[in-house]
Design a protein around this nucleic acid. Structure first.
Lengths: 120, 120, 120, 120
DNA sequence: GTGGTCTAGACCACT
DNA sequence: GTGGTCTAGACCACC
């Protein structure tokens, strides 16, 4: 089982993003128990320690809640979820726009380009 | 002299992007001589080796042309410039859209969000 | 039913301390029958095994006396009680002072700080 | 080189405390470079990863400042230092008093006991 | 040499 | 079986 992570970024960050995404697109719902450290390690083809680091990080910022010897759960605090969701999307849109502007595009050109882009 | 690069990504990649941007937004024009390795190293607060690596990469893909003991110049080959420009923007838009879709957004929502985003 | 023990220390040790405290502050008096393992387990929100371990330890050092199939009693041996009490307080004061000295405080400063501390 | 840590507490927490103490009693002064991860690992007879964890934790709460590939320095922000110092001493005194009260001592008895305690 | 990341594999306490 | 900690040892980018 090979992992397919970008070697230029720390794996634990990519795992964090992956899990955040799974939370935001409702694959893991509020209050759900997420897979155990060992399961995720197998799923991602990565060492358990790496998963551990990613998950504790997510616990620290409130997206997950850990219960010792039981498991980890997606927070049920909607405020945190919403806030995280918003910061992430705002970040993504912001950096995307900044980069496009740097390349000389205007807002209208960007929107047109998006409209013309095939959705696969 | 502090640089402000993301410590999680190889600096030389970020330098490459920076220079590409400067080429595409016409700060460095076709045929222009770009600053020397040492100057760029000072400007970016980065080790000259790192600049060296970035520039050689840009030479390899044809955006720059090096003349031994003289300097490095932006290519005058418009085809290469255009092609590079297009691949980059297509990549940027593509990955941006893919990530937004992963978060559950539709094309329309994305476009609206962009429209509402403040341009600073 | 949530317990509020420090997850970094073995719970049975914390339970031992708790019961010792209850003995020393006369909540459990000499010769008193203390609650059963099951009751304590419920009270503390903890596994009965953990209580078992704590109580056996307290039996080992003489603070409790167990009667098979009847219950556990606080020792009536005043010597043991006094001795335990003294060692504990001496230990507490000793480690407290040592730590404060390590932080650079003098005895006088410590005493003043205690005097100024609000008693809730 | 054997370490002498309390096996009941995570080593990284004890390392954190040790370093905090060294900062507060001026063994490591403001702006000082502290020993490297590897050196501390040798000094404490502990795995480098464990030190790493302790130090990143201290970085997170602002007591240390890390410079990649250079070293780690004690913060020069007096506010943080003072605040940390105060919380720690207040905590120590608070828990000490609480425990002594639980054992039935009054403030005066505690102060007398401290006065009578030998300073070694 | 320095901090940062990662693997492989182990032990522990608790449920 | 679960999270948490730890060791031993490795590789990397950067200075």
């Amino acid at each position: 089982m090979k992992n397919n992570f970008d070697p230029n970024l720390p794996i634990y960050l990519q795992v964090m993003d992956e899990i955040k995404r799974n939370i935001f697109n409702k694959m893991y719902q509020m209050g759900d128990k997420i897979p155990s450290v060992r399961e995720l390690a197998l799923m991602y083809g990565v060492n358990p320690n790496t998963i551990q680091k990613a998950l504790s990080e997510l616990e620290r910022n409130g997206l997950l809640r850990g219960e010792r010897a039981v498991g980890r759960y997606v927070t049920e605090d909607e405020t945190i979820l919403k806030k995280e969701m918003e910061t992430i999307t705002r970040d993504m849109i912001g950096t995307f726009l900044k980069e496009m502007f740097n390349l000389g595009f205007t807002k209208e050109e960007i929107i047109n380009a998006i409209k013309e882009t095939e959705v696969k």
